[in-house]
Write a protein that binds this DNA or RNA. Structure first.
Lengths: 110, 110
DNA sequence: CTAATATGATACTAAATGGTATTTTTTATA
DNA sequence: TATAAAAAATACCATTTAGTATCATATTAG
């Protein structure tokens, strides 16, 4: 079990790189092995694999073995934490002293 | 005018650091000078200032001069690009999962 | 004017990050 | 079985990042 706030952090971290966001786009078409994915990028398969590890740590993808391949799939709830953080935070402009802010502070989701 | 995609990148980049997200929280209470903000963190004012620069580049805050102080304010539309990216992408996600689900259901009906 | 305050600017360091290259392990197939 | 393919593991490198320390500039108070 990871510490509070860690999930949000690893997700934002994973989203902060353009290559990783591009990988998510590619995976939204279809599940892909590392090799398949690497064909679309001008970098080594090892580099793509590293990005996939970060995406997995961020809860944005999951990986399943299929023979000698590793199939990468989008994780349905991966964007949830980040999306909710943004949504709640956006509410501050409507009500700076509102309940949403208190909720977020209590979660320590900094 | 900055290049397409740059805005999104700088915003995600700005959000990917816990100290910067914490600064946004503090600013949601009230506008603050650099010095005021720095009092809440265990780091030098110079370090806080660097984070503020990144937040400004990401379009998440704006800065106005007030005498010798620089007052930092949340930028209302700062989260828009990131929020829309996530929403748009979540759409693809749902579509794909929907298709997958349909495909599986169809197979089971054979 | 002078001193104190708030910030800006610069240079520097340690650690994290994104990338390559190479070797090993696992699995499929001729 | 021998060989090729896919990926894992490791070591290594260059750049970026987060932080500090220090000095300069601007502004307010006395």
């Amino acid at each position: 079990m990871q510490a509070i706030g860690t999930e949000l952090q690893s997700t934002f971290r994973a989203l902060a790189d353009p290559t990783r966001r591009h990988i998510l786009m590619r995976l939204s078409d279809s599940d892909m092995s590392i090799g398949e994915l690497a064909q679309g990028f001008e970098m080594t398969r090892a580099a793509v694999k590293k990005h996939l590890t970060v995406l997995e740590q961020g809860g944005l993808i999951s990986v399943r073995a299929n023979g000698r391949e590793r199939i990468n799939t989008l994780e349905p709830n991966g964007l949830k934490a980040a999306s909710e953080w943004i949504a709640y935070f956006s509410g501050f402009w409507d009500d700076r002293l509102g309940k949403l802010k208190t909720a977020i502070e209590n979660e320590n989701n900094i």
